[in-house]
Design a protein around this nucleic acid. Structure first.
Ligand SMILES: [Zn+2]
Ligand SMILES: [Zn+2]
Ligand SMILES: [Zn+2]
Ligand SMILES: [Zn+2]
Lengths: 137, 137
DNA sequence: ATTACATATGTAATAGTATAACATTAGAGG
DNA sequence: CCTCTAATGTTATACTATTACATATGTAAT
């Protein structure tokens, strides 16, 4: 129960719009689309897409949320150290999204592309899977 | 010079719309956006977005082209065996895109996510980099 | 050749995603 | 208080993609 309001402190420096968007994503835990967020927060005072997109942009920049490119959706960061790097599994059948928590991922990933003599600044990895429950049924 | 029309044979079974879209992507080699393709092929008889999207969908399905999700663009497949798996480097400065040709990639990638006991059906990997020429300048 | 079926086309309308432009306001330092 | 920067509010617009429906084309069996 001690974590019920664990986000309050962390989100202290955010502006009102940023905070209500972050809270929605945090409480949902699922990937949400910008216009769904807009509809959900009409009662909180959000009126235009731009208000949502500006908040989302800032939260992505701060690393508090991630954008999942292939589904145009945003999800709370479930890790603490991914910076601008993202790695998700997405179930092809039910759409459930999970952030990959592998502290070795960044190193492994760098190895993959090492041949190219390129400096990787960030990455976005989207793995389509059959999740456990979908694999059974 | 013997490869000038190397695509003609391979694209024989495609329909007219599919072929002209594929030819454009093949000749370009760069990622192109759907509405750019539409504009470029007006003179070839393409009039509506849907004609382009239908051709693109089919070509993606056939594995002849890939969609790069984070830039809403399509690019010719520069590999022969990636099926529905995609892996690209994208230069953050100049936007240049390269398909990663690493025959071990698929295995390495599977190892990364192995913990999760999930069956990976396909993946989409986007590595943002500084390309060689951009790193120098 | 005719039928049947699946796939592809053509066209118009509409849905969904995201940004430009500009005026105004709120906060942080000096 | 003044200044600067970041965030807001609002309107309009650009960009990306799909729905719906009528028509045509290709292929294979009868
Ligand atoms: Zn994260
Ligand atoms: Zn599932
Ligand atoms: Zn490929
Ligand atoms: Zn570059």
């Amino acid at each position: 129960m001690s974590s019920t309001h664990s986000h309050s402190k962390k989100n202290q420096s955010l502006t009102k719009n940023q905070r209500i968007v972050l809270d929605l994503l945090q409480n949902s835990g699922e990937p949400l689309k910008a216009y769904f967020i807009l509809d959900s927060l009409k009662k909180e005072g959000l009126n235009s897409p731009l208000q949502v997109y500006r908040a989302l942009d800032k939260l992505v920049e701060l690393g508090k949320i991630h954008k999942i490119e292939s589904i145009n959706s945003f999800i709370i960061c479930n890790n603490s150290n991914c910076a601008s790097n993202t790695a998700f599994t997405i179930c092809e059948r039910c759409g459930k999204v999970k952030e990959i928590k592998n502290k070795y991922l960044k190193d492994s990933v760098s190895d993959l592309v090492k041949d190219n003599q390129l400096e990787i600044t960030r990455y976005n990895l989207e793995f389509y899977v059959l999740c456990k429950s979908c694999k059974i049924n």
